[in-house]
């Protein structure tokens, strides 16, 4: 669902860039606060010059749990990057691939999940031409904001009524359909094609892709959790 540059007009790609910048700045601030702690002045004074690796005199430093969280984010991001390369065939000459929004945010929380997907999208567009660089804002809004962030809250609400695996699956499906809808609106507003043509076509294809997204998401969350479990619970 990576939009190339030419499907969007500059107004749409520009405003999506702005919206994406706001989302990312907020998510970044939230994650930074979660993975760091303020180092007390007395500790800094006592340590003297030994705290050379405190960056730019910043008072915040990475906690041990925060470091683990960042490693988990990196692992999830690289796994989602790889999984997105694996296009699976669906009906009549079409393929789909994982978006990974709900996968990332159920594993890491909504803010970290959003950043993880945005990082994957940035690498894909900068180095692999998958999704245009001008369209990166729109792609981040679709797959990181709607896919991961909103996807997380869909999961969160459904989980009150259904078992976890069912909530994950349903949220994963909904996140793909929602991202496809947002994508259709952006392309429609750009005047590339009429809304009445693109909205139903995108829905039909992504309603099917979403089913596979749900299956992969549930499976990969189990695998990821068992492979990264701590305290000797590692199940290999």
């Amino acid at each position: 669902m990576h939009i190339p540059n030419d499907f969007l007009d500059p107004k749409v790609s520009g405003s999506m860039m702005g919206a994406a910048a706001v989302v990312l700045a907020y998510a970044l601030a939230k994650v930074r606060a979660a993975v760091t702690a303020i180092v007390p002045q007395e500790a800094l004074a006592a340590a003297g010059k030994g705290v050379g690796n405190l960056l730019n005199g910043s008072r915040r430093a990475l906690t041990r749990l925060g470091e683990r969280k960042l490693y988990l984010m990196g692992m999830a991001a690289s796994l989602i990057f790889a999984a997105q390369m694996f296009n699976f065939p669906i009906n009549n000459g079409t393929s789909g691939h994982l978006l990974g929004g709900v996968l990332a945010s159920v594993l890491l929380g909504p803010f970290a999940g959003t950043l993880v997907i945005a990082a994957v999208l940035a690498i894909q567009s900068l180095f692999f031409g998958d999704g245009g660089i001008m369209a990166l804002g729109a792609n981040i809004i679709n797959m990181a904001f709607f896919g991961a962030f909103i996807g997380y809250y869909i999961y969160y609400i459904i989980k009150k009524y259904l078992p976890e695996w069912a909530s994950i699956g349903l949220a994963a499906w909904a996140s793909v359909v929602l991202a496809a809808f947002a994508c259709s609106l952006e392309i429609g507003y750009s005047g590339t094609i009429g809304f009445s043509a693109i909205i139903p076509s995108m829905f039909k294809v992504h309603a099917i892709i979403g089913i596979v997204e749900a299956l992969i998401t549930v499976t990969m969350i189990k695998v990821f959790r068992s492979m990264t479990a701590e305290n000797g619970e590692e199940t290999e």
């Binding site: 796994l79 790889a82 065939p89 789909g96 496809a180 492979m227």
Partner: peptide
Amino acid sequence: KIIFLAVAVAILAAFFASANPDGLDHVA
């Protein structure tokens, strides 16, 4: 282990992934 898994998935994808256009490309 996760990095090895990701590398393995990327390599498998290179050989076995479907070359058909994805949802958006197909619609386009």
